[in-house]
Write a protein that binds this DNA or RNA. Structure first.
Lengths: 185, 185
DNA sequence: GTCTATATTGCGATAGAC
DNA sequence: GTCTATCGCAATATAGAC
């Protein structure tokens, strides 16, 4: 019998509930009561698995770290190249990574120092990879900023129509960004 | 005697205090108690000028509206053109507009619908102006996303070193963005 | 592991004196 | 116009039964 990958099934359900409340509503809405209710346990039950709210935050940030590492690996080996992969994957809200990034962003906005440090290091990872794929470092930065902009819009203005309206617009945006990437230094 | 532009001196001091707590700390830190203390009045004194926290939010959003209108006018008439003006003015945290935008962004992140609507309309104004200055609409959008990205970084990762490290890097970034703007459709 | 109290603190808002 | 005092509520966390 292999060691169970997730020590407890409720632990993950609680973490999912916390993440959902953060992304779908707000940092303020993600109270212990609300998380417990959504996860289908009592507050006491929740606090058995995560002994404080801070422990809950740590849980999200560990999940983020894991997902970011996986993403960087996929970006590194993407068939259409890292730049194409990066921009397309910036259209938020779909993947598990997107959800966890948004959750962490809400915590960072709530002035949580650990969350800010995690996001900062995550961004450093992406920038480093973009810089290795693009000859001009300033172009790499501009590309990262476009991706950040797309994220920012979906984080801050969730119920607004997405900045990037549809697939056709996304294709044209990717084409433009690839042009920037190919630009000689 | 002209009508006083600001009906009450403490009213503005209270609004400044609210804005400072939002930008320097977080939405959660900007409690009525904290705002009153920083403005140098009692909680009762604060509530005489703003009868609820929602009224305080409205005060910030009205200030934002006024500052955005001024900014769009300056961008329209900027000597080096709207694109140059837009990107340079995205390096956040200096002007009165920057501070108020960040304050509104914190409120938007706290799921405040009015704040989200204000930021959305503000963004619409900038995008429309960029589109009128740049022949390719997708280039206009990319330029706006770069600006948004710079903002997003200073909002979410305030104590991290700015993404745009120094004036030299900013000049190279502006040059790149102007290249994008000049790109034929 | 999960539950029901309950202690404690902090917040938004009201009431009424000055 | 500014103050103090206080109510009502919600949030984090603890204690201890099952």
């Amino acid at each position: 019998m292999p060691p169970s990958p997730s020590p407890s099934p409720s632990r993950d359900r609680i973490l999912d509930a916390f993440e959902e409340l953060l992304t779908e509503q707000s940092e303020r809405a993600a109270t212990l009561d609300a998380v417990a209710a959504r996860a289908g346990v009592s507050k006491g039950g929740l606090l058995y698995h995560f002994s404080s709210k801070d422990a809950l935050v740590d849980g999200i940030l560990e999940r983020l770290q894991r997902l970011v590492d996986d993403d960087l690996e996929r970006m590194r080996t993407a068939p259409a190249g890292p730049v194409d992969y990066f921009v397309r994957s910036s259209v938020s809200s779909q993947s598990a990574l997107d959800r966890t990034v948004i959750a962490a962003a809400r915590l960072a906005q709530g002035a949580n120092p650990k969350a800010r440090a995690s996001l900062s290091s995550m961004q450093g990872g992406w920038l480093a990879l973009l810089e290795s794929a693009v000859s001009d470092p300033i172009a790499a930065k501009a590309i990262m900023l476009v991706g950040d902009g797309i994220y920012y819009n979906s984080v801050l203005l969730p119920e607004t129509a997405s900045v990037v309206r549809d697939d056709a617009e996304m294709d044209r945006l990717v084409a433009l960004v690839l042009e920037i990437a190919a630009r000689p230094r």
